Simulated scan of single mutants.
Amino acid sequence: MNTVIKAYYRNDLGTKNSKRLRKYKKYPCILYSVKNKSIPIYLKLSQMLKLKFMENIYKKNIIISLNKVNYLVKILEIQRHVFKNEILHLDFFLLKIL
């Protein structure tokens, strides 16, 4: 069974805006695709915790729900803080639009 994660569009890009998101317990992410343009998104803390405690997270398929459209994705990369072991950024790869 796939895990369903609710995501939101992110309009403000850049380091400054990513730091602001993290301050409010929101995590910047990007959804990459081969055919389509990449989509900047963010996840709230509750959604991030679903991912944080999954085993074999790189092998699992995840469904991202974004404005009533579901995307089947895999995690491409997780960026963590060097000392704090906190998640800073997630990269997803689009497998299929459901």
Rank of each mutant, 00 (worst) to 15 (best):
M1I: 11
M1P: 08
N2W: 03
N2R: 10
T3M: 03
V4L: 09
V4E: 08
I5S: 02
I5R: 00
K6D: 09
Y8E: 12
R10C: 08
R10V: 08
N11M: 09
N11T: 10
N11F: 12
D12M: 08
G14H: 06
G14W: 08
T15I: 13
T15S: 15
T15P: 07
T15K: 15
K16A: 15
K16L: 14
N17Y: 15
N17T: 15
S18E: 07
K19D: 11
K19G: 05
R20D: 13
L21P: 13
L21C: 13
R22M: 05
K23F: 06
K23P: 02
Y24D: 14
Y24L: 14
K25C: 05
K26I: 07
Y27C: 10
Y27L: 15
Y27I: 14
Y27F: 15
C29P: 05
C29L: 06
I30D: 10
I30K: 09
L31S: 06
S33F: 05
S33A: 13
V34G: 02
K35G: 13
K35S: 15
K35H: 14
N36Y: 11
N36V: 04
K37T: 08
K37N: 12
K37D: 11
S38D: 15
S38R: 14
S38T: 13
I39E: 13
P40Q: 09
P40W: 12
I41P: 02
I41F: 04
Y42M: 10
Y42D: 10
L43A: 03
L43F: 03
L43M: 03
K44Q: 08
K44R: 05
L45A: 09
L45P: 02
S46V: 10
Q47D: 00
M48P: 05
M48D: 06
L49V: 10
L49Y: 12
L49H: 06
K50G: 03
K50L: 14
K50H: 07
L51P: 02
K52W: 05
M54R: 00
E55V: 03
N56F: 00
N56V: 00
I57C: 00
K59H: 09
N61P: 03
I62H: 00
I63F: 03
I64S: 00
I64M: 01
S65W: 02
S65G: 06
N67A: 07
K68Y: 06
K68F: 05
V69R: 09
N70R: 15
N70C: 11
Y71V: 01
Y71G: 01
L72S: 09
K74C: 08
K74F: 06
K74T: 11
I75A: 00
L76R: 07
Q79A: 04
Q79T: 04
Q79M: 04
Q79I: 01
Q79V: 03
Q79F: 01
H81Q: 14
V82G: 13
V82T: 15
V82L: 15
K84S: 11
N85T: 14
E86L: 07
I87C: 11
I87K: 12
L88P: 08
L88Y: 12
H89I: 08
L90C: 11
L90A: 10
L90F: 14
L90W: 09
D91R: 05
F92C: 05
F92M: 04
F92K: 04
F92S: 04
F93V: 06
L94C: 04
L94E: 10
L95R: 02
L95K: 07
K96T: 06
I97L: 11
L98D: 14
L98H: 12
